[in-house]
Amino acid sequence: MSARRRWERAAIQAACVAITLFMGVPLYLIALAALSSRDSLNQFPLPLLPTDPSTETMSTFLQSTGVTGGFINSLTVGLGTVVLALLVGVPAGYAVARYAFRGKDTYQLILLLTRALPIVVLSVPLARIFLDTGLYDTTYAVMLLHTALALPTTVLITAAIFVGVSHEQEEAAMIFGASPLQAFLRVVAPQALPGIAAAAMFAFMLSWNEVLGATVLTLNQRTLPAQVLTTLADSPLAYRFAGGLALVLPALVFIAVMRRYLLNMWGTTLR
């Protein structure tokens, strides 16, 4: 290796490390802040190493009004969104993958367009509609909004998954005596399952992270992010840091689990 080449390699490594620090250090800091005692958070300058780890800040946050309820609501809404989005989205994704039908191009275009619809445009009128139908300030209202938001991506992801299971396999199952439903359940579904699980996690994450709509559609049945957002102005810094960590943690798990699918889903299917 020439000296120049060696220098280049070193520069590349250094650049990677620098970027990783930029991306990683804030995560370390929020964890550090949220896991410090209230006293050490009041110091200045703040210690940069975990000299005094404590669960005080986190437990105070968890015991604050609305936080436990927010957790439960977030989970309810997230799981409900997953179920609804899959119930509605998987059949549509299957249709897009397998059938040629009139208006298919238009349908796919609409799917892509809806992804460009700002959430804010839907939330306020939906609040009106839900007030009229008695759904306002329920987890169902947020669930419906999140289902709508997750639906286009669910259809696109599942369509890509079903395209990956060759149609000849289904035909083979039917030749050997399976009904269309049996062919789907015995041959397609088992192979599509990991991908469908990925789509489900995607929907859950979308719901877990969505703030604005959840805030607009509820008053008391806040999801966790909505609860944190609406109490932001009146809360101490410690509360905000703890809230930050509580919101970030699922993301770490999510990305770790989904690494295999990241490039396919965000990079290709959903662009």
Binding site: E168, Q169, A172, I175, A178, S179, V187, P190, Q191
Partner: peptide, 20 residues
């Protein structure tokens, strides 16, 4: 009749054997 009621069997070009 649908394929499953025709009493036949088939070998496919892509084999179409079930990977799972």
């Amino acid at each position: 009749l649908p394929a499953r009621q025709r009493g036949l069997s088939m070998v496919f070009q892509s084999y179409a054997i079930f990977p799972h």
